[in-house]
Amino acid sequence: MKLQHYLGGLENLDPVNFETKVFVEPWEERIFGIHTAMMALSNHLDAALPAYEIDQVPTEFKSFWTWGHLRQGAEGMHPFEYFRLRYYEKWLGGISSFFVAEGYITQAELEARTAAFLADSEKADAPLPSSGDAAIDAQVVKYLTEGDSPLRPDSVTPRFQVGDRVRVKNVVSGDHTRLPGHIRGRVAEVVKVYEGAFTYFFPTTDGLGTPMPVYSLAFKPADIWEEALIDPNSVYYNDIFEVYLEAIESGEDHAE
C-alpha cells in the first residue's frame, strides 16, 4: 500500500501549498487540455451517460481514459516521486506512461521529443496544432458541456438505511482505491442514502465494478483523530460506496 492512498486526514503533511491559481505555468494548461481531450475521445463513451456516438468521431485515439485512470497513475507512483513533483507534473507522468503503454509512442521517441523541447524553448511555447477535424473539435466541446457520469439507472436495494451504524471495511487496495485510508475500520452513522445506483469508471481490485448504492456517513472526529486536533462539536462526513461498508453487530459499536 503506497502512502498516497492515505493522504486524507493525515497530520503534519507540511508545508501546505496555499496556491490559489488553477494554472501556475502555461504548460499546465496544455496538460489539462490533453487530459480533457483524451476523456472526450475515450472509447468508453459509447456506453456512457449521456449517449455519445464516439465510433463516428474520426480520431486515432482508441483507448479507454478517465479521471480514474489519471488518479491510478498518480497513486501508482513511488511515494518519494509523488511528493516531489508538482500537481500537473504527476498528470504529465501518468499520461506519458499511458501513451507508451498503449503503443502510441515508444519510450525512445518520447525521450527524444522531450530532449528536443528542452533544448528549444520556442518549441515548448509554440501554439498547439489544431486537430484539423471539425468533428473531433465538436466532440471535445460536447464532452466539456455534458461530461459523462458513473451514475446508472439500475434498480438496487440499499443494504443500509438512514440511522444505521456501519463500519468501514479495512480492505487491501490495489493500484487504485476510492476508500480513504483514515476512515478504514471506523464506525459511522448513515445520514443519507443517495438515489440511484453508482459505479466507477472501471473495476477496482478492492470491490468497485457493478452499480451499487452510495451513502453519506457521519463520523465523530474523536473516533478518527487525536482530541487536541478536533473541534468537539464538529461532525465529519464522507460519501462511501456500499461495497466498503459492513453492518455493526449488536454490542460491537466501536472503532478498531
Rank of each mutant, 00 (worst) to 15 (best):
M1F: 00
Q4V: 00
H5F: 03
L7E: 00
E11S: 14
E11A: 11
N12I: 02
D14A: 12
D14G: 06
V16H: 13
V24Q: 09
V24G: 05
V24L: 09
E25M: 15
E29G: 05
R30Q: 09
A37I: 08
M39E: 09
M39H: 00
A40W: 10
A40Y: 04
N43C: 13
D46L: 11
A48M: 03
A48I: 03
L49R: 10
D55M: 12
D55A: 13
D55P: 01
D55L: 14
Q56R: 14
V57M: 04
T59E: 01
T59F: 09
E60K: 14
K62E: 09
F64C: 07
W67N: 15
G68M: 11
H69P: 01
L70A: 08
L70I: 06
Q72N: 06
G76N: 00
M77H: 00
F83A: 01
R84T: 02
R86W: 02
Y87Q: 08
E89C: 10
K90T: 01
W91C: 11
G94P: 00
I95S: 04
I95F: 03
F99L: 15
F99H: 02
F99T: 01
V100A: 06
E102W: 10
Y104F: 15
L110V: 05
A112W: 02
T114D: 14
T114R: 11
F117E: 15
F117H: 14
F117T: 04
L118P: 07
K123S: 11
D125P: 03
L128M: 12
P129A: 10
P129I: 07
S130K: 12
D133F: 01
A134R: 15
D137N: 12
Q139P: 03
Q139C: 10
V140D: 06
K142R: 13
K142A: 14
K142P: 01
Y143H: 10
T145Q: 14
T145L: 07
E146K: 08
G147F: 07
G147R: 00
D148T: 06
S149L: 11
P150R: 04
P150D: 02
L151N: 02
L151I: 05
R152Y: 11
P153I: 12
P153F: 15
P153V: 15
V156T: 02
T157Y: 03
P158T: 02
P158C: 06
P158I: 07
R159H: 02
F160M: 04
F160E: 08
G163P: 03
V168N: 07
V171D: 01
H176I: 10
P180V: 04
H182N: 12
R184C: 07
R184M: 13
V191N: 04
K192T: 11
V193Q: 03
E195N: 14
E195A: 15
G196V: 06
T199F: 09
T204S: 03
T205N: 06
G207H: 05
L208V: 09
G209E: 00
T210N: 13
V214W: 07
V214R: 10
Y215N: 06
F219C: 05
F219H: 10
K220P: 04
P221N: 14
P221R: 15
D223R: 11
E226Y: 01
E226D: 07
E226I: 00
E226G: 09
I230M: 06
D231Q: 03
D231E: 11
P232I: 02
S234D: 15
V235R: 15
I240L: 09
Y244P: 07
A247K: 15
I248H: 08
S250A: 13
E252Y: 12
A255K: 08
E256A: 12
